[in-house]
Design a protein around this nucleic acid. Sequence first.
RNA 1: GUGGGUGUAGCUCAGUGGUAGAGCACUGGAUUGUGGCUCCGGUGGUCGCGGGUUCAAUUCCCGUCACUCACCCCA
Length: 422
Amino acid sequence: MSLRAVKGMKDILPDEISKWHRLERAFRECAETYGFREARFPIVEPTALFVRSIGETTDIVEKEMYTFTDRGDKSLTLRPEATASAVRAYVQHSVQGREPVTKWYYVGPMYRRERPAKGRYRQFYQAGIEVFGDPGPYIDAEVIDMVVGFIASLGIAEVEVLINSIGGPETRSKYTAALLAYLEPHQDGFCPDCQRRMGANPLRVLDCKVPRCAEIAANAPSMLKHLTDDDRAHFDELQATLTTLGTPYRVDGSLVRGLDYYTRTLFEVLGKGEGLGAQNALLGGGRYDEMVKSFGGPDTPAIGFAVGLDRLLLAMPEVESESHVDVFVIAAQPTVRAEAALLGRELRGTGLRVESDLRGGSLKSQLRRADKMNTRIALILGESEVAAGAVQVKDLREKTQQTVFRKEAAKRVHEILDTPVG
RNA sequence: GUGGGUGUAGCUCAGUGGUAGAGCACUGGAUUGUGGCUCCGGUGGUCGCGGGUUCAAUUCCCGUCACUCACCCCA
């Protein structure tokens, strides 16, 4: 087979789709319970949108984006995440003029050209929320509490919530200076990446997994000790609120995200169950109070997160899937296939999901198909039934069968299924 | 980008230097128009691709591609 799906991009076939539906429905319901409304953004955006928001020196921008030039010589990029688009849309449509606080959610595919692994694909799916106009910290806690509740509602029990604060611009510049002062004497011991990061974004050195770098980073001055009074108060109040809400969390002073736009609150949820492989970060998020302003909008605080749906799916427990068909209509002889099609249409009109096999096979094979589909009811229509204006209603689970008038068939089926006649 | 593992039927996998097998799935029958269980039969494979060694390669060797896991990165 020479034509295959692009590396790292997968087809989702019907056998898997019910799990996706369940996951997406649960997310929408949860978000809407908290007053969020769905927004949809383009998958393709100007490249500059991501370069400016995510950061020029991040891995995403440096080596993972699907960037191409369109026929008008514009540089476009398949979105690697959705927050930048949300901010762009918020500013572009002057949403701040309509309401003081804006709560949006989104669901959709994102694109990053990484080496595929379990739970990491080049086209992957994220669901996320963004809140504009509330400086926190109470909304921060509520958002974290909401997403933890969402994950729990999926039956994913073992998770760990990490939080941190990297402060605002003032904290950041003071801390960066202190960090550089500490790091510079060790510079020669760093991996090449970190040597580069020191100039571009020293915070990310703290996040390096190379043993030697991690060792040096472990003794670096603590960011949390450098928070300004305001940043400190914000972080303390966040923790107090989480405690009030009963959301378990752990402060991890080394938690740093791979996107440059974050300020103050940062959080991440790790899954611990089997099946996730090494990609155990289920969700990540934080506050980005400077981004709206930097895109030319009003000075607007914001917070959001994105959950990786592919990973949630891996962590979700299996549930038995129900049949996608209520009734299987069977033509006992090939001569009554047109009548069977008509009967099927009558039933669908009452809201039933109806399948049939109109190829003209044996009654036995059609019943076998009904059974394979785990269908509750089979309606059997043969020449004698058509002549009598009747139909056989067979309950495949209870193994009972009765003859009813054809015009009573739909009603009888709904009685057995205990569903309202639509 | 770096390393490891695996490529044989639609799926999960066995196997052999003499061009292939099981289970499941699909399908027909046992039961003129009645499913699930059982029994019997059938369809289905250039053994990933290219090259080398050999009388002979699905098997051994090399290369390549794909998939996968890990590092890394992150959701």
